[in-house]
């Protein structure tokens, strides 16, 4: 191996605890569906922007839930979270999101956006399957470490697909203590 090869290898390889060490398309900035729709005047892009919103919302919730369950599984050392009703609902939502994703038609220029959603869906699915494999009394540390990487990767993909303009946002600010719904809506609610 040449010195250049070694340098390139060191520079480009990720540590095992880095989420980018996982295989699959990288989380990357992608075109904003709303911008594409307005710049191109494309109905298809507009339709995509509207249709991907419920998928995004499903994934946002799935990732939030799984992250919370991971914290609880780690800190309580109880893998029983797998059997909670919330996990069942999470699985159902993930399944629905999969159907919607498959039905989502991405026009030219937005296929990379859809790919980010697909990756977020795939990695969150991996976390769910890993939850199902957890067994009581086993040493969960290594498994939970790997699941932590998976959920971070899922989040990174969803974050890459986020767009304020297309209303694909991680946080609902509308009733936050620091926000003001009346300013947002332009309607004085006082």
């Amino acid at each position: 191996m040449s010195a250049m090869d070694l340098f390139t290898r060191l520079a480009e390889s990720h540590k095992p605890d880095c989420m980018l060490s996982l295989e699959g398309p990288a989380p990357e900035a992608v075109p904003d569906p709303e911008v594409m729709a307005s710049v191109l005047g494309s109905d298809a892009a507009g339709l995509y922007a509207a249709a991907c919103r419920p998928v995004y919302e499903d994934l946002r919730r799935i990732i939030g839930q799984l992250a919370g369950l991971l914290i609880l599984a780690r800190l309580t050392a109880r893998p029983e979270v797998t059997g909670l009703a919330e996990m069942e609902r999470c699985r159902a939502r993930w399944s629905d999101a999969g159907h919607r994703l498959r039905a989502l038609a991405a026009p030219a220029g937005l296929s990379r956006h859809k790919a980010q959603l697909e990756s977020a869906h795939a990695f969150s699915g991996d976390v769910m399957r890993a939850f199902s494999d957890l067994r009581p009394a086993a040493d969960l540390t290594a498994r939970l470490d790997h699941m932590s990487l998976l959920i971070k990767r899922a989040y990174a993909h969803l974050d890459a697909a986020s767009s304020q303009r297309a209303r694909l946002q991680m946080v609902d600010f509308s009733h936050a203590c620091c926000s003001c719904a009346s300013q947002h809506s332009g309607v004085d609610q006082q």
Partner: peptide
């Protein structure tokens, strides 16, 4: 008002 990302960072 809760960001899933904050929970992910909590992981």
């Amino acid at each position: 008002a809760v960001d899933p990302g904050d929970i992910v960072r909590g992981v």
